[in-house]
Computed example of a mutant assay.
Amino acid sequence: MREDMLSPSFGNRLIQGMEASDRAALLALATPVDFAQGHVFNEPDDVVEHLHFIDSGIASSVAVLEDGRTVETVMIGREGVLGVVASVVPQLARTRSVAQSAGTAQRIDAARFRQLAVQRPGVRDAVAGFMARLQGELEQSAACNALHRAEQRFAKWLLRCHDRVEGDTLSLTQEYLASMLGSQRTTVNEAAQSLQKAGAIAYSRGRVTVTDRAALERAACECYRAGEIRS
């Protein structure tokens, strides 16, 4: 799957898959932007003013609980669009949207996108298809978080990151991993050590290197394939 996600390794796949005239109309409204790791696109209850079609890098939607705990709900790379909730009607964000890794995107004003979607059914259908796949992933994740072991979920999460970045090394601190997985740091450390013993990853000082992709896939739960968004 990694080869499919990353070839070519730059450019949003939704935009690339549109008819030439639809693609040109969309890009005429877009502003190319760079984002750094940790950049916050919006906080809960912010008005979602822009859609970001990711060209490279990874963005995550993160649920923030009253006690400050967090857990990732959605991961988006170049297969999708951040802020898709505002593509149909004006919306308030329900989660925090944050850059998991640095990258680039095509930023489009949400109101202008909605106008374009009325005029261009091809644009509307491309984004609607992504929303449908996203819903399927969310439904699968609900079962995954309830029923699968931390090591399985960690392996799945690493695979999804690996699909969306170039190279095999990910800069991920233990604290960050815990916040994305909604787990204790000790739980994440135990899962990482187990995967390292299996030869799937090398893990030290905030860096995770995928050393055996096949071993990591064997360690992951079925949800990696069942719930993964494909274009």
Rank of each mutant, 00 (worst) to 15 (best):
R124I: 05
R164G: 11
L147Q: 11
V118G: 12
R160I: 13
H148L: 15
A117H: 03
L134S: 10
F113G: 12
D109N: 09
D168W: 02
G103N: 05
L116V: 04
L134D: 09
D163K: 01
G129C: 02
M131K: 11
E139S: 06
A146V: 02
L147S: 10
A110F: 00
R124G: 05
Q115D: 15
L159V: 08
F130T: 07
K156D: 12
L116A: 02
L159T: 08
S141R: 13
A143E: 13
W157L: 10
D168L: 02
E151F: 07
E139V: 03
A117S: 10
G122I: 05
R107V: 01
L159R: 01
C161M: 12
V165N: 09
A126W: 03
Q106A: 10
Q106L: 01
D163L: 06
F113P: 10
A132K: 06
P121M: 00
G136D: 07
E137A: 14
G103K: 06
C161R: 12
R107C: 06
G103H: 07
W157M: 11
L159E: 00
V118H: 12
R149E: 14
G129V: 02
A142R: 08
V118D: 13
Q135E: 12
Q140M: 05
D163A: 10
R114F: 03
N145H: 13
R160L: 14
G122Y: 04
